[in-house]
Simulated assay, not measured.
Amino acid sequence: MRVGLTGGIASGKSTVGRLMAEAGCTVTDADRLVAELYRPGGEGAAAVARLFGDEMLRQDGSVASERLARVVFADPLARRRLEAEIHPLVGKRFAELAAAATGPLIVFEATLLVDTGGYRNFDALVTVEADPELRVRRAVARGLDEEEARARLAAQTSCEARTAAADFVILNEGTLDQLRERVLEVVAQLERRAAEGVGDRGQGSGVRG
């Protein structure tokens, strides 16, 4: 079963991805695939240079990701142009990894699965949510200034839209142990679905709270 894992900035989806991996899932992070594409000589680096010029590359030919992020989060058109180039490359690489993976649950962690409609390519969707102000504080604690954190949050689809699309909603506003308990419950439900051959993405069946 292919499972999409999503959530907005600083929601904790990467932590959930790690916990799902610890629970035996095969987890691939879209950010890691993008980082590979942005290496010197990578297809992603070539696309960025073609779209935005060589000033978006470092001296070694890799993408200056922070510089690029400031541009695309301030310009919706630039962001859409970038996504149109990069998302197909990421999807192709994930398909290759998924084809080689073993185990019942193959998880793809990506922020924009609902924004782009890509969640429809998965058998189930899990979203990780938290109060927006808590997410801003987390993002600032990670090094973003507050204005940039709020801009990134505003540029992403709403928690309501992600929740409406998801089969499983995990709220990440408590302790790590509480989060782990909820993740294990979701994984158990997904494993049952996989064993039963269920992949209809019936909404409202997940863990909320």
Score class of each variant (00 low, 15 high):
residue 58 R to K: 14
residue 41 G to C: 07
residue 200 D to N: 14
residue 13 K to Y: 07
residue 19 L to D: 02
residue 83 E to S: 12
residue 125 L to D: 09
residue 95 A to H: 08
residue 132 P to C: 05
residue 64 A to C: 05
residue 22 E to I: 00
residue 98 A to F: 02
residue 182 R to P: 05
residue 38 Y to P: 07
residue 122 F to K: 02
residue 179 L to V: 08
residue 169 V to L: 03
residue 26 T to W: 11
residue 5 L to R: 09
residue 117 G to A: 04
residue 78 A to K: 14
residue 200 D to T: 14
residue 201 R to K: 14
residue 19 L to V: 01
residue 68 L to E: 11
residue 46 A to H: 12
residue 209 G to S: 11
residue 84 A to K: 08
residue 130 A to G: 05
residue 73 F to T: 03
residue 60 D to V: 10
residue 170 I to G: 09
residue 141 A to I: 04
residue 87 H to T: 02
residue 57 L to G: 12
residue 12 G to V: 06
residue 208 R to G: 00
residue 121 N to F: 10
residue 181 E to Q: 15
residue 98 A to E: 15
residue 42 G to Y: 09
residue 23 A to E: 15
residue 23 A to D: 15
residue 182 R to I: 00
residue 116 T to E: 07
residue 172 N to K: 11
residue 178 Q to R: 13
residue 173 E to M: 06
residue 132 P to S: 09
residue 199 G to H: 14
residue 82 L to F: 06
residue 98 A to S: 13
residue 198 V to Y: 09
residue 18 R to T: 11
residue 86 I to W: 11
residue 209 G to H: 12
residue 41 G to Y: 12
residue 53 G to L: 10
residue 23 A to Y: 11
residue 176 L to Q: 13
residue 65 S to Q: 15
residue 69 A to F: 03
residue 66 E to T: 13
residue 94 F to S: 12
residue 205 S to E: 13
residue 134 L to C: 00
residue 202 G to I: 12
residue 195 A to S: 14
residue 72 V to D: 07
residue 52 F to W: 11
residue 20 M to D: 01
residue 45 A to Y: 10
residue 119 Y to L: 00
residue 183 V to W: 03
residue 176 L to R: 14
residue 74 A to H: 01
residue 91 G to H: 06
residue 9 I to E: 02
residue 40 P to W: 07
residue 142 R to H: 01
residue 101 A to R: 03
residue 134 L to W: 01
residue 122 F to I: 02
residue 85 E to W: 06
residue 151 A to Q: 15
residue 99 A to R: 15
residue 198 V to S: 05
residue 87 H to S: 04
residue 102 T to P: 04
residue 91 G to E: 07
residue 61 G to R: 11
residue 145 D to S: 11
residue 133 E to C: 02
residue 198 V to N: 07
residue 74 A to I: 05
residue 94 F to E: 11
residue 40 P to Q: 10
residue 34 V to G: 03
residue 1 M to Q: 02
residue 134 L to T: 15
residue 200 D to A: 14
residue 118 G to H: 08
residue 103 G to R: 08
residue 19 L to E: 08
residue 189 Q to P: 00
residue 153 L to F: 07
residue 172 N to G: 03
residue 52 F to N: 10
residue 117 G to W: 10
residue 201 R to I: 01
residue 35 A to G: 11
residue 25 C to Q: 06
residue 191 E to A: 12
residue 73 F to L: 06
residue 187 V to A: 10
residue 169 V to H: 09
residue 11 S to W: 02
residue 133 E to D: 15
residue 136 V to M: 05
residue 101 A to N: 03
residue 47 A to T: 01
residue 183 V to S: 03
residue 19 L to S: 10
residue 61 G to T: 10
residue 114 V to E: 05
residue 153 L to Y: 04
residue 208 R to E: 04
residue 87 H to I: 08
residue 147 E to F: 01
residue 188 A to T: 14
residue 40 P to Y: 04
residue 84 A to M: 00
residue 72 V to R: 12
residue 52 F to M: 06
residue 181 E to A: 15
residue 96 E to F: 01
residue 5 L to H: 09
residue 199 G to F: 01
residue 108 F to A: 07
residue 43 E to D: 14
residue 78 A to H: 07
residue 111 T to I: 13
residue 140 V to W: 06
residue 40 P to S: 05
residue 127 T to G: 02
residue 141 A to H: 10
residue 162 R to C: 00
residue 87 H to F: 11
residue 33 L to M: 13
residue 54 D to F: 00
residue 111 T to R: 08
residue 12 G to P: 08
residue 118 G to C: 01
residue 151 A to M: 14
